[in-house]
């Protein structure tokens, strides 16, 4: 019962805190354990986004690059964080680059598989979407503060 073992591991992750076991077992069917070496790209801007990650260990940077600007890191993600939501809606393409800044362990979820399960079980869909919404609200709020150039004024 690989799926059941995996569902137990999933239950440990902050993202799934409070989620029903039956939903976790159901979702575990879409999940696998993955590992990224330091410095590798987990995904790159413009690639097909068919997956999302729950980070278990290590640090990931979200980056964008361009002439003159060079490479800009605008967010770092860590253990307990969610990485990626471009799999949720068409055109299912990654917006930014994600790079492992250290060895990274994560659960990877197949996007198509998860979407199908959510279509089939709306209760699961609601549970999952409300978790994503909370993450997105937090990221949006933080991004707004980041835009404010908070430290510009003297203390």
């Amino acid at each position: 019962m690989v799926t059941r073992d995996l569902s137990r591991s999933l239950a440990q992750h902050a993202f799934f805190r409070g989620m029903d076991e039956k939903h976790l077992v159901f979702l575990a069917g879409c999940a696998k354990n993955v590992l990224f070496d330091q410095g590798t790209f987990i995904f790159r801007e413009g690639e097909k986004a068919g997956v999302f990650y729950l980070l278990r260990y290590g640090q990931v940077a979200l980056e964008v690059h361009g002439p003159r600007k060079g490479q800009i890191r605008f967010q770092s993600l860590h253990e307990d964080d969610v990485l990626g939501w471009s799999w949720l809606f068409p055109p299912y393409t990654w917006h930014f680059d994600a790079r492992a800044l250290s060895l990274v362990r994560a659960f990877a979820f197949d996007g198509v598989c998860v979407r199908e399960k959510c279509d089939a079980d709306h209760e699961l869909g609601y549970q999952l979407m409300s978790r994503f919404a909370e993450v997105m609200v937090g990221r949006l709020q933080a991004a707004r503060l980041q835009c404010l150039d908070l430290y510009g004024a003297p203390a």
Binding site: L62, R73, F74, S76, A142, Q146
Partner: peptide
């Protein structure tokens, strides 16, 4: 430590301090 904008050499946190 955390910064609003990281450079390539920066291996630390990126994001506002509240995060």
């Amino acid at each position: 430590l955390t910064v609003d904008r990281g450079t390539v050499a920066w291996r630390g946190n990126v994001g506002v301090v509240t995060t």
